[in-house]
Amino acid sequence: MSPSSCGRAKHLRRRLLVLALLPLLGACAHIGAQPWERDVLARKSMQLAREPAIMAFDEHTYFSKEAASGGRSFDGGGCGCN
């Protein structure tokens, strides 16, 4: 491939990328939910911290068996499993 055709290919790729991102820009204009559209977000099944007891048990298990911790919240453990 010659340098000029290589440059054309790059240019084409850039244009394709811009075209591919255009719908996303359109989507940005619609980001979020209006107050009358929040019924699904308000559902029990849509809450980020559902079943806190199960989550706490799981975090305790992972904290005592793995080196990594935290992320969802603070990384302390409060247990002697070190």
Partner: peptide, 10 residues
Amino acid sequence: VTQVLTPRWL
């Protein structure tokens, strides 16, 4: 940060 993207996606 928590962001609602659409009425059914966050």
